[in-house]
Computed example of a mutant assay.
Amino acid sequence: MSDEHSTAGSYVHEGEEFERDMDYIPDRLTRAGGEPVDHRAGTGKESPADAPRWPVEAGRYRLAAAKACPWANRAIIVRRLLGLEDAIGLGLAGPTHDARSWTFDLDPGGKDPVLGIERLQEAYFARYPDYPKGITVPAIVEVESGQVVTNDFPWITHDFFFEWTDHHRDGAPNLWPEKTRDEMEDVMKRVFTEVNNGVYRCGFAGSQEAYESAYDRLWTALDWLEERLSTRRYLMGETITEADVRLFTTLARFDPVYHGHFKCNRAKLTEMPALWGYARDLFQTPGFGDTTDFEQIKRHYYYVHIDINPTQIVPTGPDVSVWSTPHHREELGGSPFGDGTPPA
């Protein structure tokens, strides 16, 4: 199956279930002189032991991302929460792409000002001239060589926390607290398989049977999250963790896109009290709402997925001002950054 956050094309295959291709460039950016910290990165999949290692080095790499893409949006959020802006540059592609690649059409002249390229495809081909797979965001690109290093999105944010610690800002939050780390891995895996990927399983189902199965799985997970978040402010308790980042990017897209475009329409996010309050709490936390662009999100999905929306008409609604209304989640206690501080 085609991997949605790569390039335009056919995503719905008649009679088939959607299956995300998780075979990414496995390289890791790790601290010199030590073994990398290895968990499951919230997917249940170990990093290959023989995956190439690149040294962590401020200024050497650039994060190529797009605010429209939920997988890239999480990398943008984590980079900001940890204060890695001075250590890792950020190149933002526009919300739409064609069958070849994401493009840097938001920049003057249509080129990334640091990498000097029009298409992210150029960085992939600089390392792999015959790269056969989708050109995905997020991706880490080495600035000097212009070559892609990795596009393995669960490990990118994992390593931002564990391997880039020397470059974290003072007061950076603990996104992987040791006391809840094992449980968090399990929570993130369920969020990934059943929610982050579950909405795509609904939207790209190739048969009624596949769609209904995907729909039931998604809402079983959302009901579980609604119950979990009715008694705790964040997924893992009193402070934000990477688990919250990963869930937030799907929730932010739920009413504008997934509810209608992907047929995940049992209820809107605004009709789920705990999840809606939780989502607004995060949106109003520095690092989340200020990295979310609802117009780019809508334009990406409704314009690129011509299988589902052949007219490419982008809806005007919903009203996003509701994201700034009071959430009252502080009544559950806790604080987003714990002993840390918000990003500037």
Score class of each variant (00 low, 15 high):
residue 87 A to K: 11
residue 296 Q to G: 13
residue 15 G to E: 11
residue 41 A to Y: 14
residue 82 L to S: 12
residue 48 P to D: 00
residue 210 A to D: 06
residue 108 P to T: 06
residue 103 T to S: 15
residue 167 H to M: 02
residue 178 E to M: 07
residue 291 T to G: 00
residue 52 P to G: 10
residue 343 P to Y: 13
residue 120 L to E: 10
residue 307 D to V: 03
residue 137 V to D: 12
residue 163 E to V: 09
residue 202 C to E: 09
residue 26 P to S: 03
residue 309 N to V: 04
residue 66 A to R: 04
residue 292 T to Q: 01
residue 248 F to G: 01
residue 254 F to M: 06
residue 146 G to K: 07
residue 296 Q to W: 13
residue 262 F to I: 03
residue 329 R to E: 02
residue 112 D to L: 03
residue 211 Y to G: 01
residue 261 H to Y: 00
residue 256 P to L: 10
residue 110 G to T: 05
residue 251 L to D: 03
residue 69 C to G: 12
residue 240 I to E: 02
residue 126 A to G: 10
residue 69 C to N: 15
residue 135 I to D: 06
residue 109 G to P: 10
residue 64 A to S: 14
residue 105 D to H: 13
residue 15 G to A: 10
residue 72 A to G: 07
residue 182 D to V: 14
residue 197 N to A: 12
residue 170 D to L: 10
residue 285 T to M: 05
residue 153 F to L: 07
residue 234 Y to D: 05
residue 237 G to K: 06
residue 103 T to R: 15
residue 115 L to D: 01
residue 100 R to S: 11
residue 312 Q to S: 13
residue 63 L to Y: 09
residue 305 H to G: 09
residue 91 G to H: 07
residue 332 L to E: 05
residue 29 L to Q: 13
residue 221 A to N: 07
residue 277 G to L: 09
residue 62 R to K: 13
residue 9 G to Y: 09
residue 324 S to V: 04
residue 126 A to W: 09
residue 228 R to K: 14
residue 227 E to Q: 15
residue 116 G to F: 06
residue 144 E to S: 15
residue 243 A to E: 08
residue 320 V to I: 14
residue 285 T to S: 04
residue 39 H to T: 15
residue 133 K to T: 13
residue 243 A to T: 01
residue 130 D to L: 04
residue 240 I to C: 00
residue 262 F to L: 06
residue 319 D to Q: 12
residue 237 G to L: 11
residue 110 G to Q: 11
residue 182 D to C: 00
residue 185 E to G: 01
residue 305 H to C: 06
residue 159 D to P: 12
residue 200 Y to D: 10
residue 319 D to L: 12
residue 19 E to H: 14
residue 31 R to P: 04
residue 249 T to I: 10
residue 240 I to T: 11
residue 123 A to I: 08
residue 284 Q to T: 08
residue 128 Y to M: 07
residue 71 W to K: 00
residue 56 V to S: 11
residue 6 S to F: 00
residue 135 I to T: 14
residue 332 L to G: 04
residue 108 P to F: 03
residue 67 K to Y: 13
residue 20 R to T: 09
residue 200 Y to T: 02
residue 156 I to D: 08
residue 36 P to C: 05
residue 198 G to W: 02
residue 312 Q to G: 08
residue 15 G to M: 11
residue 241 T to K: 13
residue 187 V to T: 11
residue 294 F to V: 10
residue 24 Y to A: 05
residue 11 Y to D: 00
residue 13 H to D: 09
residue 249 T to K: 03
residue 231 T to W: 00
residue 100 R to I: 04
residue 210 A to S: 08
residue 48 P to T: 00
residue 205 A to T: 05
residue 214 A to C: 06
residue 337 F to E: 12
residue 3 D to T: 15
residue 237 G to V: 08
residue 157 T to M: 00
residue 288 F to Q: 06
residue 176 W to E: 12
residue 143 V to P: 05
residue 273 P to A: 13
residue 240 I to W: 07
residue 89 G to T: 05
residue 298 K to M: 14
residue 10 S to G: 06
residue 14 E to I: 04
residue 14 E to M: 05
residue 198 G to K: 02
residue 167 H to I: 00
residue 274 A to C: 02
residue 43 T to W: 02
residue 269 L to Y: 13
residue 204 F to H: 11
residue 34 G to L: 02
residue 278 Y to A: 01
residue 181 R to I: 11
residue 229 L to I: 03
residue 184 M to D: 12
residue 58 A to H: 11
residue 173 P to L: 06
residue 22 M to P: 01
residue 51 A to V: 09
residue 227 E to L: 04
residue 342 P to K: 01
residue 209 E to D: 14
residue 232 R to D: 10
residue 241 T to H: 09
residue 285 T to D: 04
residue 242 E to G: 03
residue 304 V to T: 15
